[in-house]
Nucleic acid binder design. Structure first.
Length: 270
DNA sequence: CACGGATCCTGATGGC
DNA sequence: TGCCATCAGGATCCGT
């Protein structure tokens, strides 16, 4: 589920709720994708000094280390002063002086990983290969042009892989390519420069709009206050197979690339 | 090194 | 109602 907008919405909520709080207790449920890498007790007494984001990771800077939180496909984080009894899908709780952070993740593709500092090899392992931030200054057509040179894979899959640009997941990649008029099956290196300009703009606008709307809630994503995101109502192609294209009325097509659905308009996207 | 495919896990949904 | 197949926001690992 969570792509960059959902993680950013989560990050802002956690920052609002728990910045400056001190961890008092930790509860862990079933194992997530990767081990925490530290005895939970070592988190106790540490203060949450900042809440940042890198790609789809949320980074909690603690007094003596960093906590990397990934929401996987089905994760969401709730912040509250009180939470009830942990349910079967609640796999990580941080009890702090300002309230509780609870990670709920039915499929358990998410992760919470601790490292003593940002230069630690584990952090490098998880974040080191990531591409540029799509909302940052480094992401422009010149960069994309250079980064896509020699890439024979489809533009959709190259963007999704996260090594060129991060945070653009399965929903927003379809939405961005539609807005840029680029066919998702086109080889990445064959996207002409003017199209790359449009693509950069489209990715930025789609992600920013999704953040404003609180992300997309296809089924289980919720913000830290428990509310749903609304971007899915503005999706122009994602999940709209067979429905008319908003520009030309041609039925939207669904294809599968790398076991993931892609939605596009055969007429508007070339 | 870049690529495509299999894989982790659980729940929702739709067809019969 | 039950059963089975299919699909779901991600990212890593493993061959080629």
């Amino acid at each position: 589920m969570p792509e960059l907008p959902e993680v950013e919405v989560t990050r802002m909520g956690v920052e609002q709720a728990l910045l400056g709080a001190t961890i008092e207790a930790v509860r862990m449920g079933k194992p997530l994708r990767w081990p925490l890498q530290v005895a939970p007790q070592r988190l106790v007494g540490q203060r949450i000094q900042s809440v940042q984001r890198r790609g789809k990771y949320m980074l909690l800077q603690l007094s003596q280390g960093v906590l990397l939180v990934h929401l996987g496909m089905s994760g969401s984080v709730r912040c509250a002063t009180e939470v009830g009894e942990a349910g079967v899908h609640d796999h990580f709780d941080l009890f702090t002086t300002r309230g509780v952070l609870r990670l709920t993740d039915p499929r358990r593709f998410g992760a919470v990983v601790y490292a003593p500092h940002m230069d630690h090899p584990r952090v490098q392992q998880l974040l080191g290969h990531l591409g540029v931030e799509p909302l940052g200054d480094a992401f422009d057509a010149a960069y994309l042009h250079a980064a896509l040179r020699g890439r024979s894979g489809s533009i959709k899959q190259v963007l999704l892989a996260g090594q060129v640009v991060v945070g653009v997941g399965n929903i927003y990649v379809s939405e961005s390519l539609f807005r840029a008029g680029i066919h998702p099956l086109r080889q990445a290196r064959r996207v002409a420069r003017p199209r790359l300009e449009r693509l950069v703009q489209a990715i930025r606008e789609v992600l920013q709009r999704a953040i404003v709307l609180g992300g997309s809630s296809l089924r289980d994503f919720k913000g830290t206050q428990g509310g749903y995101g609304d971007f899915q109502h503005e999706a122009l192609v994602y999940g709209r197979a067979g429905l008319p294209c908003v520009h030309c009325a041609t039925p939207i097509r669904r294809v599968v690339q790398g076991q993931r659905s892609t939605f596009y308009c055969v007429r508007c996207q070339t």
